[in-house]
């Protein structure tokens, strides 16, 4: 059943290419704006690269979150999922997981390109990718809760950012530090463990909180 849910979510995503491509376009647009606006961000041996990279990843994730439940909410499918399906929890978990695939995992796979653009040297790349892999699930799972609560408002974007960005701060702190350490050539596994820990906490509470949030939002209609 889990596999069937997973593939149906993937098919949904495949039909809606803009949902995948727009955040990606934003990702590279953000990197470009930063590199042009703050040339030292890419020339200073990658001192700022970690912060810039994670900041843009945060914003990309936030941007993609708005569409996570929006369409299903508008056409009433969400209500069906919550009422009719035996385990709405699993459907929602799969939805968030697929969201992570096309934000977190995709960004991790694109990390070589991003590193190139931000001037992160090649020897740091494995750590950068590992940090992205471990840290981005936290963004998806925490963010989904905010997305669930704000999906009922037609202009929920700012509110979503207000609710979710403060909770993203630890990921930014540890993530940026890991990248900077890797660029400087220092090994730093403690912060990687921290990223993994935050992701685990988010994974534990995120799907439950998202289900509750969606139930609240559905009643708002």
């Amino acid at each position: 059943m889990i596999l069937r849910l997973f593939f149906s979510e993937l098919r949904l995503l495949a039909r809606n290419k803009a949902q995948v491509l727009n955040p990606l376009a934003f990702l590279f647009l953000g990197v470009m704006l930063f590199s042009v606006g703050v040339p030292s961000a890419v020339q200073g041996n990658g001192i700022y690269a970690g912060a810039v990279l994670w900041f843009i990843v945060l914003l990309t994730n936030l941007l993609a979150l708005d569409g996570l439940f929006r369409r299903d909410y508008d056409n009433g499918v969400l209500e069906q999922i919550l009422c009719a399906s035996e385990v709405p929890f699993m459907v929602i978990l799969m939805r968030i997981f697929v969201h992570w695939l096309h934000t977190g995992l995709l960004i991790t796979l694109l990390a070589p390109l991003l590193s190139l653009a931000l001037g992160i040297e090649l020897h740091a790349l494995p750590v950068v990718m590992l940090a992205l892999l471990l840290g981005t699930p936290a963004l998806s799972f925490i963010g989904a809760t905010g997305a669930a609560l704000t999906v009922g408002f037609s202009r929920g974007g700012v509110l979503l950012a207000l609710l979710v960005l403060p909770l993203f701060l630890p990921v930014l702190i540890f993530g940026a530090h890991v990248v900077n350490d890797a660029v400087a050539g220092n090994g730093n596994s403690a912060q990687l463990y921290w990223l993994a820990f935050i992701s685990m906490v988010a994974f534990t509470i995120g799907p439950f909180a998202t289900t509750v949030g969606l139930k609240i939002s559905v009643q708002l209609q």
């Binding site: 701060l169 630890p170 509470i205 949030g213």
Partner: peptide, 24 residues
Amino acid sequence: LRGRASALVAIVGTINIPIIKYSV
């Protein structure tokens, strides 16, 4: 709904406070 929504955010925020504090 207002109560339930704000309660949910307060709970998630409270769980995150130690992590935020430690990281900062």
